[in-house]
Write a protein that binds this DNA or RNA. Structure first.
Lengths: 262, 262
DNA sequence: TAGTGGTCTAGACCACATA
DNA sequence: ATGTGGTCTAGACCACTAC
């Protein structure tokens, strides 16, 4: 073993090893990594301690360490490669599903998607309550509401309303609005939390949209719109965002993703 | 250990232990259970061999057996309870997501669903090709097409077209049509294959439906309908069914389920 | 060649369920 | 009281990567 590569692992264990009892060691180690990664203690792509270092610095044996690390791989939080080591999963490579507002390209057979452009219209801080409040656990906190327009393949527009807790996602509030144009807010959030979006609940309803939205998006006023509602959660179960996507009922083929679960 | 409870485990191992090399033991044991359950060798609710029996009848040690069984739990294929044993996950208790055509009850806050009644209209065998063909791997096989009407809370109707490979699901062909009324085809199939539906790809599009469908379902002719397309796969990756659900754009709040995946 | 993760073992002790 | 799964250990050997 090299001179002092264990010191970082030592500090990690001192800072993040849970004190609560009644929990298996492999679960404690998993939580320690989950929390430390969310804190930014380990950044995306960072090399994690080796199994041997963890055996030395935690009260776990090799089998227990391996089980915890295997579970973290299943969570999509870390990646491991035999011979090279364990690293924090890199969210900068945004092959990140789920991705909302993906419309299939009818003119191609290969399942490719229509190009999407986003533009931020408005950003507002509010403590107004609404259907997003229970989903986000708003209580008396403020939420950021971001209104956007999605232009799909220059063919039609979709309107989006995004809600998230303001104090939990200061980046969304502090960044200049222009910086949010054309970006995927899911990735902004994933970077800030150093965590991927994990669970996504989707619900679809149909609504007659207000005239201002219809005219804004070039839909006929009084028309019924399909509304896709999405609530996303982090791996630790905490809510991340609540979004409504309004799209015309003449829209294309919307990919709703793949769900697994027997 | 009791008199001869191992004999069943013995036979299981003789029949299902994979011969191919180059695969870890825990994976071999997992596959042996997956295949045997799909064959109906173990029925839903059946009690599986204990860890100790598997240690005795397989070339695996306890740790390896436990890992395989833990992975099967994660797959949703078996259930384990400390003190009582391991059993095949019971698909007869249909708390089985994903469940299509679930509309939330607006009048309640608890997220309960509107009651759904189904009626089979027609069942047809055909070797016609269509968008379902690549999804099902139809080639020159026949498919069963089942047309159904879903009545949601006596409020509105949705139309459903169901496709599956005829030779793979003979039950759907042989059963009297009346026997398919009011049943969840997903469960019929799950029982036959002794396997839960595992992965579900959902896609939504909008279409002007033919007049006969509109009048049949009590929609205004020429109206645009939302169409939810669903393709389901088994845990082994094989396709199970292809369905289109046509619903009026005045419909309620459709639950599209929860997807997990970073 | 040295270090890494992947697999596997033969034990051990414990918590829980059933009888 | 017995049997079950859940956790954990201290080793072992191997496959792969990087140097």
């Amino acid at each position: 073993m090299a001179t002092q590569p264990t010191s970082r692992a030592d500090e990690f264990v001192r800072r993040y090893w849970p004190s609560e009892a009644g929990q298996p060691k492999h679960e404690k180690l998993r939580q320690a990594f989950t929390r430390s990664i969310m804190d930014g203690y380990w950044l995306a792509g960072a090399r994690l301690p080796t199994e041997a270092e963890l055996v030395a610095t935690t009260p776990c044996s090799l089998g227990t360490v391996q089980r915890a690390l295997r579970d973290l791989v299943a969570d999509g939080i870390i990646e491991r490669r035999r011979g090279s080591g364990s690293v924090v999963a890199d969210l900068r490579r945004p092959i990140d599903r789920p991705w909302h507002m993906r419309f299939l390209d009818r003119s191609k057979e290969d399942g490719s998607y229509l190009p999407v452009f986003t533009r931020v219209l408005e950003r507002r801080l509010t403590d107004e309550q609404g259907p997003w409040s229970p989903a986000l656990g708003q209580a008396d906190h403020q939420v950021v509401r971001i209104d956007r327009v999605f232009t799909i393949a220059d063919e039609f527009d979709a309107y989006n309303v995004f809600y998230a807790l303001a104090d939990r996602f200061p980046e969304l509030v502090q960044q200049p609005m222009a910086a949010l144009n054309g970006v995927n807010l899911k990735i902004v959030i994933a970077r800030q939390h150093h965590m991927p979006v994990h669970k996504v609940r989707q619900v679809m309803r149909f609504e007659v949209v207000p005239d201002w939205m219809a005219t804004f998006c070039g839909w006929s006023t009084g028309a019924t719109s399909a509304v896709l509602n999405v609530v996303a959660h982090a791996p630790d179960g905490g809510p991340i965002y609540y979004q409504d996507f309004y799209m015309p009922t003449g829209a294309g083929i919307l990919d709703l993703g793949t769900s697994t679960g027997g």
